[in-house]
Write a protein that binds this DNA or RNA. Structure first.
Lengths: 226, 226
DNA sequence: ACCTGAACACCGTTCAAGT
DNA sequence: ACCTGAACACCGTTCAAGT
């Protein structure tokens, strides 16, 4: 919106496109905090103030980046014979998309685009959950339960991914648990050993999402209703 | 660790304690990003460099704050007659603690204290899930599934809490959906209306966590196992 | 022991000025 | 139309110097 259409006189040093591309590279490499106007200018071999001419300011730049990222997302299409596995396939797909764009959730949310971004997956979930026989408020709760579960899972994953080495680690803590005399009501040692092992996120996602979806789609109502 | 024990000559302008208290206030009011050494100094009526004498640097200050917050957390104690409701009560308690300290998860994670922080709740969950009859790897998966679900839910809630007004809102989007001609496989209009209403987070948490826990504790195995 | 100002290397942003 | 340097108000941090 900053530029009009005009026949360029001398070839410009940078273009709006070049700024956006460099910014995308910076964000993907160092995260949102790593995107600084001065770094950007340095990378493009231009004065800081040139950046401002092309994109306005940092906030507007991020707005544009988010816009492009969201539009570049592939649509989710369910697969499988029955509603349960189709809902699960949507959950798996949503998790994959969110994991592939780790900075997206935060950026989108800061810019107020969360509902718009999640509408397609919400619609797909609604269709499958309707096909499973749920209707009205009950179906809406199921849609949102799955959404929250998947998004939340990815947020937890992201937290553990980009964190430094945790000390003491879960392994160390649960091995100490095994060595200590067990108090009343303590967990069995096989459980402690299992908790000392690192998390298999794929498997955990499969198990927890599977359990949730099966319970939500089961004929018995999850909450008392008329 | 910066100070020794010595009889103070003139009453100090600030104390380590005063710095920590002011920092806590700043973080709770403006978030972690709002904590700047210079603001802190200004608030205490002292030169910036005094802060450094007392607490080392910004990183060390945050370390200390997190330490205090984690130690100030109340232990979770389950309540209810059967294992399912006891696990649910733990989930509710964990959610409450995390919601009461919105900055804590991020701070703890950056400092590598996540396993240490969640060990108590993990232990409590393990005990109740063992009481429900699960053992070994199966029980560990249930523990982690509940943990991830609750933490993830709170992270999603936090996202939506501290976000600006979202535009277009979910209400607007789903009302447009209602107005448009329904394509094949579309959700029913009662569902669309329900999705146009704002989220009742407490109810959604109750429903989704209830469904998850019931499914995890059910006798039929959630995944094929020998 | 405790506090200070000066200095350095970073930010985002605005502005007047160049071509 | 496009780019520039200077300037301002912010950061965190170090250092030598004060009392």
């Amino acid at each position: 919106m900053t530029q009009g259409t005009a026949k360029a006189a001398r070839t410009p040093a940078v273009s709006r496109r070049a700024v956006l591309d460099a910014a995308t590279r910076l964000v993907e490499a160092q995260g949102v905090a790593g995107l600084s106007m001065r770094k950007l200018a340095a990378e493009l071999g231009v004065a800081v103030t040139s950046i401002y001419w092309h994109v306005g300011n940092r906030e507007a730049l991020l707005d544009e980046l988010v816009q492009e990222m969201v539009h570049g997302l592939d649509a989710l299409s369910p697969s499988g014979p029955d509603p349960t596995t189709r809902v699960l396939s949507l959950a798996v797909g949503l998790r994959r998309v969110l994991r592939d764009h780790p900075h997206l959730i935060g950026l989108v949310n800061e810019r107020g685009l969360t509902p718009a971004m999640f509408l397609p997956s919400e619609r797909a979930l609604a269709a499958e959950i309707t096909a499973a026989g749920l209707t009205g408020a009950r179906a809406a709760e199921a849609v949102r339960a799955v959404q929250y579960h998947v998004i939340g899972f990815v947020l937890v994953e992201r937290h553990t991914d980009r964190s430094p080495e945790q000390r003491p680690s879960a392994e160390e803590l649960w091995q100490a648990e095994l060595a200590a005399p067990p108090p009343a009501g303590a967990a069995d040692s096989a459980l402690a050993r299992a908790l000392a092992a690192p998390v298999d996120a794929d498997r955990l996602f499969e198990i927890s999402t599977g359990a949730l979806v099966r319970a939500l789609l089961a004929p018995s109502p999850p909450a008392r209703e008329t």
